[in-house]
Design a protein around this nucleic acid. Sequence first.
DNA 1: GTCAAGATTAGT
DNA 2: CTAATCTTGACG
Length: 204
Amino acid sequence: MDSGGRILPPEFFDRPVLEVARDLLGRVLVREREGRRLAGRIVELEAYGATRRGQPDLACHAIRGKTRRNASMFGPPGRAYVYLVYGMHHCLNLVCGPEGRAEAVLLRALEPLEGEDVMAALRPGRPRRQWTAGPGRLSAALGLDLGWDGAPLAPPGLWLEEGRPLPASRRGSSPRVGVDYAGPAAAWPWRFLEKGNPHLSRRG
DNA sequence: GTCAAGATTAGT
DNA sequence: CTAATCTTGACG
């Protein structure tokens, strides 16, 4: 089964993060695991690391410079940045912008397309609606952990396919989730989503 | 070395 | 609403 189409190359991610974020809605994330294709349509994500009217993004992990955890964000575009939050949940980001820039998009929700039996097995007891709704759940459903930090977004393993970009008319935005500590940046509308999609981590 | 806090989730 | 759970990063 091939629901995605052509593979998105590293150059796709070598653009301003806000531009890439909007362009990623409707694209397909593919994970090859033990010979099985797990795939989902991107329906919700957030942009991090850009500046707005000259103001720094206080919600970005890289705000205080390069550290052991965020090193991948400073690396070349088209790679994964995976980190652990609250000691138990992994979050998958896609590194954007030129090397040295520290911009990335956090994938927050997918609409399952392929390998649903595997996702179900990785999320025992959970309803289909919840398999990939939320950054932690998404990573769990695809079997992603810290070992994927820094991995190139290319076969084999993890990559993105063209899918169908979402028309702007179906796109929604809102402040990012869980960044109330970020001062002015907490209100910036850098969460992008497909309006009305049932797999969102929460209402748009 | 020590310690507070977190780009979340599940359960009461 | 709150517990869970542990790495990270700031500070000394």
